[in-house]
């Protein structure tokens, strides 16, 4: 079992992916999802708050970083945790999230990095509908930020051929018939 943060750190440390922070120009802050930070610490004795920040810093110029919370362990829930995003209590969920909206506003950041599907949906689709979030523009998953910052080098001809052969074998096994393609 590997967490997304550990995997991304490994890719960066080992030089398996290259990042170009110069493509990102907006100020950014980091949200601490309860499951990755506080509850991870309580359950496993380790948390991802620092790694979330470190990976974010690999993607932006450090001058653009804005801290939301000095103590990730005591950061606030987005308001949609524990399945609340899917529950019928929208009014309560959005009222709950005011403290998160206020935190984001106070950072002055334009982008919020949220390494959790649920937090991302609440911060991106929920909170801006009802709360003033200051300079806020957009929410990105951690892996979305990394993907946007990637320098992608195309594979070699040999690698591509090998992948195509594996793909074709897989499609045949699974009965997937793609529309005719011209190569």
């Amino acid at each position: 079992m590997v967490s997304v943060q550990e995997l991304l750190k490994e890719y960066i440390d080992e030089g398996r992916i290259k990042l170009d922070p110069s493509v990102n120009h907006h100020t950014i802050t980091v949200h601490d999802p309860c499951n990755y930070v506080r509850k991870s610490q309580m359950a496993f004795g380790d948390h991802m708050g620092d790694l979330n920040r470190w990976i974010t810093m690999q993607c932006v110029d450090p001058s653009l970083y804005r801290e939301m919370c000095d103590d990730p362990m005591n950061n606030f829930c987005c308001g949609a945790g524990g399945g609340a995003w899917a529950m019928p209590y929208d009014e309560e969920r959005l009222a709950y999230g005011k403290i998160k909206a206020d935190q984001i506003k106070a950072t002055g950041a334009e982008i919020v990095m949220a390494p959790c599907h649920n937090c991302r949906d609440q911060i991106m689709k929920g909170l801006p509908k009802v709360h003033d979030m200051g300079n806020y523009k957009e929410t990105l998953y951690l892996w979305e930020l990394v993907a946007n910052t990637l320098v992608i080098e195309p594979w070699s001809e040999e690698e591509i051929e090998k992948a195509h052969a594996a793909r074709d074998a897989q499609f045949e096994r699974d009965g997937i018939e793609m529309e005719e393609e011209e190569e």
């Binding site: 309860c34 506080r38 509850k39 610490q41 309580m42 362990m73 005591n74 606030f76 829930c77 308001g79 949609a80 945790g81 524990g82 399945g83 609340a84 529950m87 209590y89 309560e92 969920r93 709950y96």
Partner: peptide, 16 residues
């Protein structure tokens, strides 16, 4: 009550 469902089980209370 609605309480256990509006609570997001974020764990901040238990931690503190």
């Amino acid at each position: 009550s609605k309480w256990p469902w509006v609570c997001t089980l974020c764990g901040r209370c238990e931690y503190a």
